[in-house]
Amino acid sequence: MGGLAGLWGSRRFRGLVYQALVIGGVIAVGGWLVRNTLTNLELRGIATGFGFLGREAGFDISESLIPYTPADTYARALLVGLLNTLLISALGIVFATLIGTAVGVMRLSGNWLMARLCGVYVEAVRNVPLLLQLFVWYGLVTTLPGARQALNPLPGVFLSNRGLVIPGLDWSGGGWPVLDLPRLAGFNFTGGLTLSPEFAALLAGLTVYTAAFIAEIVRAGILSVPKGQVEAARALGLSKGQTLRLVVLPQALRVIVPPLTSQYLNVTKNSPLAIAIGYPDLVAVSNTAINQTGQAVESVALVMGVFLCISLGLSALMNWYNKRVALVSK
């Protein structure tokens, strides 16, 4: 037996060789990509590095939570995009959870008609791409009547092609906030909070789509609680509602939380579809930046980094919560 053949017989040695091959492959491919990229960037005369972040952006952003003008830097423009992403994700998560839970519970309610209706909703929404639904929502919002004929479903709430206007809180007086009701002034509204048509469509789309998935998760969670638990609770004299609230839901939560986490992450990861209807989220802003500076690598890396942070943060939070739920119920 030759030395090499003998070595090859060793399991450890084989393991080392396989691992070395994988590392080598990764480095080779990575290096090849980096080299090509550098050559290409040079050929096209594109600058590298994050220096562009400090330069003037020069484009406007239609909605922003913080003061922003085209004279601000790229960094600030991206921050505006990030805040918009966070806002839409947070609201989407809250509304989708509320609606999804309600629908999931109703699918299990003894009411045949309501259970069927909710089932139709879930199946219809889950099997159609979100982007298509967003196009429809956006189409619907933009074909609403103008401000003067705005729909007024609830007092203080106006729905028109200018978006959704809702009552806001006015903190400017100092101390207690005052309710700030929107009023029609000329062709637009003053006062209250205005959600742009893009924002409203995106929020509606994300909420309705995600709620269908959450409903299924809630349903599966509740079904996972053994029947004996319900019977025992009823035998103790708890009402149906009390049984659900005190016995079933706490146990179901353990099953619900992990998939719910991934739905929450999905809301965040779906929010860049905003770009298709013109809501300036992080990806949309960074795309504009790419078009203007050509610095695709840096911008894409930045966006990816941000999303990875959001993902990691959210899953860390959920893991922590999950542990608590699991401990308490033991």
């Binding site: 965040t268 860049p272 990806v283 894409v300 990816m304």
Partner: peptide
């Protein structure tokens, strides 16, 4: 951890 949209953008620009 990444949105598909940004992966597709990466594919198309990078």
């Amino acid at each position: 951890g990444l949105p598909l949209v940004s992966l597709l953008f990466m594919a198309s620009v990078m």
